[in-house]
Design a protein around this nucleic acid. Structure first.
Length: 259
DNA sequence: ATGTCACGCTGGGCGTGA
C-alpha cells in the first residue's frame, strides 16, 4: 500500500483553508507537512481540519513562520518535538518532529536569509548547521524524512535564471553546502534527485509579482530529504502545479512523494 | 526582475516579511 507524503508552504493556513481542504479531498495524503501557517496556537484551525477528516499537530508562533503536520483522523500521528534544539531565534516556529507509524518526519521552514552578508543570512547558515546535527540524532530512529521550505536551490538548474540571482540568497555555495550537510548528516537523499535525476527541473516556488508563474520564473527550494529505505521504494516525486493556479494560491506548490 | 500577498494594528492605510 503506497504512502503519500506531501510538503507545502501554504503562506498562511487560515488564508489557504479552502485550498488545503480541496487538496486533502483530492489527494488524500497520509501525511501533509505544512510551513508558514502564520497563526498563533489559539488561531490554529483544528476544528476545520477535523471536519475534513484529518487531525493536526502544530508549532505556531504568531504572525510569522509556523509549521504543522496533518494526517487522517484515524492515524497514530503524534508530536515528538517542538522546535530545533539549539536553533538561533528559538521563538521562531520553524521545526516540528512527528511520528506516524514507523516513520519519523520533520516539517521545516528554513530562514529566508534576506541578504547575503547580513545577520539574517548568518542565522540561516547557523540554522542549517544545527539542523544537520539534529538530523544525525534523528537518523538513529530508523525511517526518517525531513521536508519543507529549505529556501535553498541546490543547483543552478534549479532556478530560472542564474544571472538574475547573482549575489542573491538561495543560490550561494555556502547555503548549498549547508543544505547538503543536513542530508549527509542524516544519511538522507533528495527524493527528486533519487527518482528524477539531477537534470530534471521541477520548480516549487514562483514570486507573486510580475507574473512570475506564467513566465516560468521560479525556483526549486522545497525538498524531501528521505532515508535510503524510503528511497528504495519511492515511486513518485512530483509538484502539484494546479495548486499554484486558481483562486488564492500559495506562492509555493505542494511537493508530493509516494512510496 | 518586481506588475503581489498576508499579517497586525486599526477602523484605511502603513509597516513588516517574503
Amino acid at each position: 500500500m503506497a504512502v503519500i507524503c506531501v510538503t507545502w508552504n501554504v503562506n498562511s493556513l487560515r488564508a489557504r483553508l479552502e485550498r488545503v481542504g480541496e487538496f486533502l479531498e483530492q489527494v488524500k495524503p497520509d501525511l501533509l507537512l505544512l510551513q508558514e501557517t502564520k497563526c498563533s496556537p489559539e488561531q490554529f484551525p483544528h476544528d476545520a481540519i477535523a471536519e475534513l477528516g484529518y487531525k493536526a499537530v502544530d508549532v505556531s508562533g504568531g504572525r510569522w513562520c509556523g509549521v504543522a503536520a496533518l494526517a487522517p483522523a484515524e492515524s497514530d500521528l503524534t508530536i515528538l518535538g517542538s522546535g530545533l534544539p539549539g536553533q538561533p531565534n528559538p521563538d521562531e516556529a520553524r521545526w516540528i518532529e512527528v511520528q506516524i507509524g514507523d516513520l519519523t518526519a520533520v516539517s521545516v521552514y528554513v530562514p529566508n536569509g534576506r541578504e547575503v552578508g547580513t545577520e539574517h543570512f548568518d542565522a540561516k547558515l547557523e540554522f542549517l548547521g544545527v539542523a544537520a546535527q539534529r538530523a544525525a540524532e534523528l537518523a538513529v530512529n530508523g525511517r526518517l524524512l525531513i521536508a519543507g521550505d529549505m529556501n535553498v536551490a541546490p543547483r543552478d538548474s534549479d532556478v530560472w535564471d542564474t544571472a538574475a540571482l547573482e549575489g542573491s540568497t538561495h543560490v550561494t555555495p555556502s547555503e548549498r553546502s549547508a543544505l547538503a550537510a543536513v542530508a549527509s548528516a542524516g544519511g538522507l537523499v533528495d527524493a527528486h534527485d533519487a527518482l528524477l535525476g539531477v537534470d530534471d527541473v521541477q520548480f516549487t516556488w514562483w514570486d507573486y509579482r510580475g507574473g512570475s508563474f506564467h513566465r516560468g520564473f521560479g525556483m526549486r527550494i522545497d525538498h524531501f530529504l528521505i532515508s535510503p529505505d524510503i528511497a528504495d521504494s519511492l515511486d513518485e516525486c512530483t509538484v502539484v502545479r494546479d495548486f499554484r493556479k486558481g483562486e488564492k494560491p500559495s506562492d509555493h506548490v505542494p511537493l508530493l512523494i509516494s512510496f
